[in-house]
């Protein structure tokens, strides 16, 4: 079977920034933290795959690795058959990246000007860019506001602009990093519907979505991977994951607790503190996923 995304022992370690005293005491010692550890996943074409984990679990680092924004320390990954380390240009040509960071747009440009600029980075000629931008503005329902400055948009509109930008190059794989973060429940629900119906079902794209929202993962995803401290704990469809528990009417909360030993708070912060045991100093290899934020 051909996979859209395939990783083999994908690992990312970051060098720890030393304090002044630490630097003086041990100038040559290399302290590292592991953000993503030996991740092995295979995602089929047209699949909506969710990666679920609390803040700092390694979700964003994993997405940045797959989008070629950072290089892996060990292991290998293929996106649309391209090696993320060696064929990064081909990878970027075939993916869309939808970030929730509203600062990733030029606020003093209009929505249309923003999209046209990013279209040129995707190698669109002016006429084609104009056509594509109009088409996408129509799809995300922003055609009437296209010539207003980005700064005048609501959070939901900014999010829809991010989706339009992520689809500019008609990518085969779309990465979404916490797409409903900061949205009100109704807008978030609309966005989920859009992702599932328009992007996956209608357009047949593969979506790799990170979330720390259990309900979102359950509602949207064909399969979910639970990630914690940089490691994938379990992968399966929501029903498969629940069926692994010896419990009546289990929830994804129960699944998360079972596989990570932690309760999951909806806003993504585990109820029990865990940073202390993840961080191993003195040359050890602690883990601190998501330090890229």
């Amino acid at each position: 079977m051909e996979y859209s995304i395939e990783t083999h022992d994908l690992t990312k370690k970051f060098a720890l920034q030393k304090g002044f005293t630490e630097f003086l005491m041990h100038p040559f010692r290399k302290d590292e933290i592991t953000a993503v550890e030996k991740v092995n996943i295979r995602i089929g074409k047209g699949e909506l795959f969710g990666i679920l984990g609390p803040n700092g679990a390694g979700k964003t680092t994993l997405i940045k690795l797959l989008c070629t924004l950072i290089l892996p320390t060990e292991g290998i990954a293929y996106v649309n058959g391209y090696n993320i380390a060696e064929d990064s240009g081909d990878v970027r040509e075939s993916i869309g990246f939808i970030t929730t960071d509203e600062r990733s747009f030029y606020w003093r440009l209009t929505g249309r000007q923003n999209l046209k600029f990013f279209a040129s980075l995707h190698n669109f000629y002016s006429y084609d860019a104009q056509k594509k931008v109009d088409e996408l503005l129509n799809i995300v329902g922003l055609k009437n506001r296209a010539d207003d400055r980005f700064l005048s948009y609501s959070t939901g509109m900014k999010q829809r602009m991010a989706i339009a930008r992520g689809l500019l190059n008609n990518p085969e794989v779309v990465f979404m990093d916490e797409p409903t973060k900061g949205l009100d429940p109704r807008t978030a629900q609309n966005l989920r519907g859009f992702v599932k119906e328009r992007i996956v079902k209608e357009q047949g794209k593969t979506v790799f979505l990170s979330t720390h929202h259990l309900g979102e993962a359950e509602q949207l995803c064909d399969r979910i991977a639970i990630i914690d401290e940089g490691e994938i704990r379990v992968i399966g469809s929501p029903e498969e994951l629940k069926s692994t528990l010896d419990k009546t009417n289990p929830t994804l909360d129960d699944v998360f607790l079972h596989y990570t030993g932690k309760e999951f708070k909806e806003e993504g912060t585990p109820k029990q503190p865990y940073l202390g045991r993840r961080r191993m100093m003195h040359g050890g290899h602690g883990r601190l996923g998501g330090m890229m934020h």
Binding site: G89, D101, Y106, F118, L121, N169
Partner: peptide, 18 residues
């Protein structure tokens, strides 16, 4: 600082051109 670099770097245009 604006936050736009990442969005540009995930396009096929290479970093030095950007």
């Amino acid at each position: 600082m604006m936050g736009t670099l990442e969005a540009m770097l995930v396009t096929p245009t290479n970093t030095s051109t950007i």
